[in-house]
């Protein structure tokens, strides 16, 4: 009886794991084969001349260039807001906050990490509703609002990775500096932070990947199907993830369908690439200080 149980458990573990690998492999193959027809000179710019498209002199209708630029602008703006706040919070939590306050703030950060992205988008949408009823009757959703909500969404990633990177540093680093007459702040600034730099950078990459993939937030806060290149903070914009969503819901022909698969593959490469580099940075940090 015991033997049988062992065998069933073993078979289950093997089965689950092989299914996982098989499933992921299938996903990749499907994305590549179904997306391949769309890959070509027209993928980025459609029928528009590349030069005109890049400079924004002519609108792009069938290409993904505007969406790509939209995602880039969104990610950059969101990071501009989130990185300083997130890293600063992480440093405070890891190095400065007294024990009890740290526990309290930790709970807040945990809960922020748990907020579903559609709720974050709803928050942004509500902000606009409120502005319309009070200060600014003409307020609308746009790039700035999406960036703000995405910044809130990725904040916990930055905080946690910064915290983890600093926590991973050996005790000796914390003692040597002050032993040589550094103040706590000098030690933090000149010893600890540079030592944890790679881990913090890894957190930024994680945040970038998360910001690029999200769809629910931006569909409530200003992403549209056909906005052209991002034109300003208050303007509507296109994004890769939102484009995939619209293509899924209302593609018109085989070419658009293939483009959906190609977009999905591109987004997958982007986010997984960023995740992998974040992981490698974290690992190299750990290895350096554990040796």
């Amino acid at each position: 009886m015991r033997r049988l149980g062992d065998r069933v458990g073993m078979a289950w573990a093997w089965g689950s794991s092989l299914c996982l690998l098989l499933g992921l492999g299938t996903l990749l193959v499907v994305l590549v084969t179904r997306g391949a027809p769309a890959v070509g000179p027209g993928l980025l710019f459609g029928d528009t001349a590349p030069g005109d498209a890049v400079l924004g002199r002519a609108p792009v209708f069938d290409g993904i260039w505007p969406a790509l630029m939209g995602t880039l602008a969104l990610v950059a703006l969101a990071c501009l807001v989130a990185v300083p706040i997130g890293v600063a919070s992480g440093i405070y939590l890891a190095e400065i906050a007294p024990r009890r306050r740290r526990a309290l703030l930790d709970i807040g950060v945990d809960m922020l990490a748990g907020v579903p992205s559609v709720v974050m988008g709803l928050f942004g949408f509500g902000l606009i509703l409120l502005m319309r009823r009070t200060l600014a009757p003409s307020a609308t959703t746009g790039l700035w609002l999406s960036a703000l909500c995405i910044a809130l969404l990725v904040l916990p990633y930055l905080i946690r990775t910064t915290q983890t990177a600093l926590d991973a540093l050996p005790e000796s680093l914390r003692l040597v500096g002050p032993g040589l007459g550094f103040t706590r702040w000098q030690n933090l600034r000149h010893v600890l932070l540079p030592a944890a730099g790679r881990g913090i950078l890894g957190g930024v990459m994680l945040a970038v990947g998360r910001a690029a993939e999200d769809t629910a937030v931006i569909m409530l806060t200003g992403a549209v199907w056909n906005a052209g290149l991002p034109a300003g903070l208050g303007e509507k914009f296109e994004a890769l993830s939102f484009r995939i969503y619209v293509l899924a819901a209302e593609y018109r022909d085989d070419m658009q369908l293939a483009q959906g698969f190609a977009c999905a593959f591109a987004l997958l490469l982007l986010t997984c690439g960023l995740l992998a580099s974040a992981h490698l940075l974290q690992r190299s940090l750990e290895r350096r200080w554990k040796a």
């Binding site: 499907v30 995939i244 995740l275 992998a276």
Partner: peptide
């Protein structure tokens, strides 16, 4: 499994819808 955490939900959604 680690790599899977990086797969965007829209990618799953798109592929399965199709």
């Amino acid at each position: 499994v680690h790599a899977m955490t990086g797969i965007p939900t829209i990618v799953y959604a798109f592929v399965s819808a199709m």
